[in-house]
């Protein structure tokens, strides 16, 4: 026992626990609490969350918080506590998709990545943040039902089985003189057609429809042009778009990422310099400097992903894709056997 005591580093035992604080991470379907060290940077916390939920395709996601009423994202290279977050514990962050793929089927490999995006997009559609026409709402609802309930079986899925589910945006329901039973019948008719689709496949079908919706993946900001006209700026995976505030579906002008030379701001003035020198520089003002910072952050991130998609996949992504293909094949074989 004495030799064991000699081996124990008493200094280490006496060391005070490192300073830490509690954080609450809210994902689209779960909440978790972590002890975060005061010295941790955004990346340390973000990596811990990704590891905990088993997410490797981390580049689509970020930790969101509210800064003086506007949306902000945790910076990876800045200390967590140096952000303008409420210091009341637990400090809360929302783990959400910050960037969207151009093509979910080609780019999203892991089931968890697809699932988180599916849940987030579904919520945005039901909450009417993304406009979705009635027929697409019904078809997507039928895929959401397939993902949750598996194959349709009239012996199990009796009339009324969807009564408690929120499946359609209220705006869509209000457009028609249909009872809840009629909606269920309509959705079930489509649902019955999806027989054989596994959960991940049904969720991917949902995303494939969603990604053709005009407002999918667009972050909107109120801006004013040099003449003082109110406009909307949209940032997405394809580029920058300028909208009339009355019509967030069809942009008046678009600047694809590969046609932009430079984006910059000084104070509140933002400038988009097109690659074509003959095209005029588009200048606008946003509401706050903080908003400009967020716009630029989204521009840089989306542009990086745009460039990355056009290069050969990194070794890590190649390995992930091949593992995912093997896993999918194994699961399909298993299903066939069953």
């Amino acid at each position: 026992a004495s030799s064991l005591a000699a081996k124990i580093n008493f200094k280490a035992l006496r060391r005070k626990p490192s300073k830490s604080f509690n954080v609450r991470i809210v994902t689209i379907d779960a909440e978790m609490e972590f002890s975060c060290q005061v010295k941790w940077k955004g990346k340390d916390l973000f990596d811990l969350v990704c590891r905990t939920i088993g997410l490797r395709e981390a580049w689509f996601f970020g930790l969101q918080y509210t800064e003086k009423g506007s949306v902000a994202w945790l910076k990876m290279d800045k200390k967590v506590l140096d952000h303008d977050v409420s210091k009341e514990e637990p400090v809360t962050f929302y783990f959400l998709a910050k960037f969207y793929p151009e093509n979910a089927e080609e780019e999203m490999v892991q089931e968890i990545t697809q699932h988180l995006l599916f849940l987030q997009v579904k919520k945005s559609i039901l909450e009417e943040e993304i406009y979705c026409p009635p027929e697409a709402s019904v078809l997507m609802a039928s895929y959401a039902v397939q993902a949750k309930y598996g194959d349709y079986d009239p012996k199990i899925h009796k009339p009324g089985f969807l009564a408690q589910e929120e499946l359609l945006p209220k705006r869509v329901i209000n457009l028609y003189q249909m009872t809840p039973e009629m909606w269920e019948e309509r959705i079930t008719a489509c649902y019955a057609e999806h027989r054989g689709r596994a959960r991940d496949e049904a969720e991917m079908e949902y995303l494939k429809i969603a990604q053709d919706l005009e407002m999918y993946g667009v972050s909107y900001f109120s801006i004013r042009n040099k003449k003082g006209t109110n406009l909307m700026l949209g940032v997405d995976a394809f580029g920058l778009h300028i909208y009339d505030p009355e019509n967030k579906l069809t942009p008046k002008i678009s600047f694809p990422w590969n046609e932009i030379r430079n984006i910059s701001y000084s104070d509140k003035e933002f400038a988009i310099k097109p690659l074509d020198k003959k095209t005029e520089v588009f200048k606008f003002n946003s509401s706050k400097l903080r908003v400009n910072k967020l716009i630029l952050q989204l521009c840089i991130g989306n542009h990086d992903l745009f460039m990355r998609r056009r290069r050969v996949d990194s070794l890590e992504v190649q390995q992930m894709k091949s593992q995912a293909r093997e896993e999918k094949a194994r699961k399909q074989l298993e299903r066939h056997r069953l």
Partner: peptide, 27 residues
């Protein structure tokens, strides 16, 4: 360019047609 909702166009058309008789007049 790939048309929007490419492989889903037929299904979407069928759903649209099935909903049409129930559309609110204001809609």
């Amino acid at each position: 360019p790939v048309p929007k909702f490419g492989p889903y166009q037929k299904a979407l058309r069928e759903i649209r047609n099935s909903l049409m008789p129930f559309a609110n007049e204001s809609g």
